[in-house]
Nucleic acid binder design. Structure first.
Lengths: 150, 150
DNA sequence: CATGAAAGCCATGGTAA
DNA sequence: TTACCATGGCTTTCATG
């Protein structure tokens, strides 16, 4: 993973539609070389999926809520049950197991406050592993990127 | 935006490498129809960018830190300065302007605890708009998806 | 040994009927 | 919707430093 590889990773993280020829001219290598490098990066597991991003407001998911969750128990089966549940809920787009006062931090995308109320009361707090939660509404998404630093 | 459109959005959010022919057979429409729908969705601003995702651990960014920030002042120029700063820092991958006790919530990706210490002390807390912060380390990334519910 | 140049195949995008 | 055409990217080969 030399400087050219890092450059390629940075470029494809921002625009996956770039052809190998496009990459070639931007990193100062040949198209074939870029092709080989991309293949090697895929084999090394650096690149995972190629996805299309969508505008949250355009699909009626403009509201972000960050929700801290405290569990009733820290037993393995309780955690597994909750994590499976989280994975099955499409409005939960991120979930981190946390150190500190709270057990999990979720990012939930909803249409509006009413929709979040429904999700919170009927779905999230209804889960048997959940002891309680604390929700915080985002007023604005200042930054969101899928690109990791190279 | 009918059911087929939503189906297309869901598919391309998970795999942008699908060809129009692939889409066609999965949604039960013709390839040309899928092509027109995708173009319309792009024109409507539903689709934004196409990106390659990378494995955080493979590029040495396996540690997530969630950091709450409190500002010295809520004046517009103070906020603008901080938001420009956040946009310029590649290790800050997400930033939400929050309601409640804290002004911002950042997600920061770093290699290890030591790297976060450096970032926090030398970069983040050094910004003139920042009054203080509270950092929480993620023990595990239970879920991360770029796909919004359709 | 990795790179760069060149060429053919093939799949895809795009269009017309 | 189906069928067609042509563009262009992917992939391999070979020569070179």
């Amino acid at each position: 993973m030399d400087a050219i590889d890092r450059r390629i990773v940075a470029l494809l993280q921002n625009d996956a539609t770039l052809s190998h020829a496009d990459l070639a001219e931007r990193v100062g290598a040949s198209s074939a070389s870029c092709w080989r490098r991309v293949k090697a990066l895929e084999a090394a597991g650096v690149f995972t999926r190629t996805v299309r991003l969508v505008d949250p407001t355009a699909v009626g998911r403009g509201v972000n809520v960050l929700c801290n969750i405290r569990m009733r128990s820290h037993a393995a089966d309780s955690r597994q049950s909750f994590e499976r549940f989280v994975l099955s809920q499409p409005e939960v787009v991120e979930c981190f197991s946390m150190s500190g006062d709270w057990d999990y931090l979720l990012r939930v995308v909803v249409a509006d406050v009413a929709a979040y109320n429904t999700f919170l009361m009927q779905t999230l707090l209804g889960h048997p592993s959940v002891a309680g939660g604390s929700s915080h509404f985002a007023l604005d998404m200042t930054k969101y990127t899928t690109a990791l630093p190279t």
